[in-house]
Computed example of a mutant assay.
Amino acid sequence: MGIVNANPDSFSDAVRHTGADAAVAHALDLVAQGADLIDVGGESGVTYTGVTAQDVEIERVVPVVARLVAEGVTVSVDTWKAAVAAAALDAGAHLLNDVSGLRDAALADHAARTGAGLVVMHTRAAPKEEHFADYGGDVVGDVLAFVRERCAVACDRGVPAERLVVDPGPDFAKSPAESIACLRRIDELRALGHPWLAAVSRKYFLAAITGRAPAERLAGTLAAVGHAADHGAAFVRVHDVAATVDFLCTREVLAGRAEPGELDPGDDALKWIRADDATTA
């Protein structure tokens, strides 16, 4: 799942993709790198900026969704607002990635109406609110209870169980240690029977492990992706698609689950780096 932020304030984007043309171009580049679907967001989850008006978010997201769907791209939309979800689904989006934990059950209604999938993520914080809940020492138990209850709400609203995806919500209303605890015990969430989404790219919990800023967390992200793959993740949501694809493909080949491609033996660029005589003279 390649990330396309169509908003100006993402915590992790070194380059801002302002305007639909730039967002679409970036999305198509991620598809060319190997992304299976694109997650389009019109509002950052950072808590140091306010809530984006729904009409502004719709204006950012819907043109990007419509153009990507016209190109044959599978599209997810990262939103917690029912009006934005409805507009994006009507433009052809295939999946709602709701980071509010289905705070507004109307998102489930829209998913049921259109046949779209729905991500149910664990969080105890309201959108755009910085909040660390008291889990009484059992954050994993809270994740399981919350996700189970929210999935039941979605099913009651008409979303088939097989169209639900679950997400432990790393960094959402959790300390880095709590996020790590959830990922260490992810098999317990997986046991609920739904595919799970690993949204681990450049996350803050990686800073507790590596001490690195968001733009420097690729190695940590890939390690987290490897852990997710080991534990049956259906999706990994990442900024660095090409590196992630290379990482996962190499794992598959070395594990004997795939074979390497053919190389052109005459392509010296794949063998070594040569100094340019003009620059070394």
Rank of each mutant, 00 (worst) to 15 (best):
E59H: 15
R60Q: 07
R60N: 01
R60M: 10
V61K: 05
V62E: 01
V65S: 04
R67E: 12
V69W: 01
V69H: 00
V69R: 12
E71P: 11
G72M: 13
T74P: 06
T74N: 13
V75P: 06
V75Q: 00
S76Y: 06
A82F: 11
V84R: 07
A85S: 13
A85Y: 03
A85G: 15
A86D: 15
A87I: 08
A88R: 01
D90Y: 01
D90V: 07
D90H: 13
A91S: 01
A93P: 01
H94W: 08
L96C: 03
V99N: 05
S100N: 07
G101T: 06
L102N: 06
R103N: 12
D104M: 07
D104H: 14
A108F: 03
D109N: 04
D109I: 00
H110R: 14
R113P: 13
G117I: 09
G117T: 12
L118W: 03
V120Q: 07
H122K: 02
T123S: 15
A125M: 09
A126P: 07
P127V: 07
K128E: 02
K128C: 02
E130C: 13
F132K: 12
Y135T: 04
G136Q: 07
G137I: 02
D138I: 03
D138T: 02
D138H: 10
V139M: 09
V140M: 13
D142T: 09
V143W: 03
